[in-house]
Amino acid sequence: MSAASPVLVEETEDRVVLRLNRPEVRNAIDADTVAALHAVCALLEERPRVALLVGEGGNFAAGADIAQLRERRREDALRGINSSIFDRVRRLPMPVIGLLDGYALGGGAELAYACDFRIGTSAVRIGNPEPGLGILAAAGASWRLAELVGEPVAKEVLLAGRILSAEEALAVHLLTEVVEPDQLVAAGHRLADRIAKQAPLAVRLTKSVFHAPREAHPLIDDVAQAVLFETEDKQRRMTAFLERKSTKEKS
Score class of each variant (00 low, 15 high):
residue 4 A to S: 12
residue 55 G to H: 10
residue 30 D to F: 09
residue 25 V to M: 12
residue 122 S to G: 10
residue 113 Y to G: 09
residue 226 A to P: 01
residue 37 L to Q: 00
residue 73 R to A: 07
residue 250 K to P: 02
residue 176 T to L: 15
residue 231 T to L: 10
residue 167 E to Q: 12
residue 47 R to E: 15
residue 142 S to F: 09
residue 245 K to H: 05
residue 110 E to D: 01
residue 38 H to P: 00
residue 109 A to R: 00
residue 216 A to I: 03
residue 172 V to D: 01
residue 155 K to L: 15
residue 133 L to G: 09
residue 123 A to Y: 10
residue 251 S to R: 15
residue 156 E to C: 05
residue 152 P to R: 14
residue 229 F to W: 10
residue 34 V to S: 04
residue 109 A to V: 01
residue 193 D to Y: 00
residue 65 D to I: 10
residue 228 L to E: 02
residue 225 Q to A: 05
residue 215 E to I: 07
residue 99 L to R: 00
residue 234 K to G: 02
residue 72 R to K: 14
residue 190 R to T: 11
residue 240 A to R: 00
residue 248 K to S: 08
residue 139 A to R: 03
residue 168 E to R: 06
residue 89 V to M: 14
residue 54 V to C: 09
residue 193 D to A: 01
residue 233 D to M: 06
residue 162 R to W: 11
residue 14 D to L: 12
residue 43 L to H: 14
residue 208 S to V: 15
residue 208 S to Q: 12
residue 7 V to M: 06
residue 201 L to V: 12
residue 73 R to T: 11
residue 88 R to C: 03
residue 69 L to F: 10
residue 30 D to I: 10
residue 62 A to G: 12
residue 125 R to V: 11
residue 243 E to V: 07
residue 107 G to C: 07
residue 152 P to K: 15
residue 142 S to M: 09
residue 240 A to V: 04
residue 84 S to Y: 14
residue 157 V to Y: 05
residue 21 N to D: 06
residue 227 V to T: 11
residue 241 F to H: 09
residue 108 G to T: 04
residue 17 V to L: 14
residue 142 S to D: 05
residue 111 L to A: 08
residue 149 V to P: 02
residue 242 L to M: 09
residue 237 R to Q: 14
residue 225 Q to I: 03
residue 197 K to E: 15
residue 228 L to H: 05
residue 108 G to M: 06
residue 34 V to W: 02
residue 165 S to Y: 06
residue 20 L to V: 00
residue 241 F to S: 10
residue 205 L to V: 03
residue 149 V to G: 05
residue 193 D to G: 00
residue 2 S to H: 09
residue 249 E to D: 13
residue 189 H to E: 14
residue 169 A to C: 09
residue 167 E to S: 13
residue 209 V to E: 11
residue 101 D to R: 11
residue 93 P to M: 08
residue 64 A to Q: 07
residue 23 P to Q: 09
residue 177 E to P: 00
residue 146 A to W: 04
residue 87 D to E: 10
residue 179 V to Y: 04
residue 37 L to D: 01
residue 239 T to L: 08
residue 80 G to S: 00
residue 187 A to C: 01
residue 7 V to L: 12
residue 158 L to C: 01
residue 232 E to N: 13
residue 17 V to M: 08
residue 56 E to P: 07
residue 218 P to T: 04
residue 115 C to D: 04
residue 224 A to V: 08
residue 73 R to V: 01
residue 164 L to G: 07
residue 236 R to W: 11
residue 145 L to R: 03
residue 143 W to Y: 11
residue 191 L to S: 03
residue 110 E to L: 04
residue 149 V to S: 01
residue 9 V to S: 07
residue 1 M to L: 06
residue 101 D to K: 08
residue 143 W to F: 14
residue 29 I to P: 08
residue 38 H to T: 06
residue 121 T to F: 04
residue 126 I to C: 08
residue 74 R to Y: 02
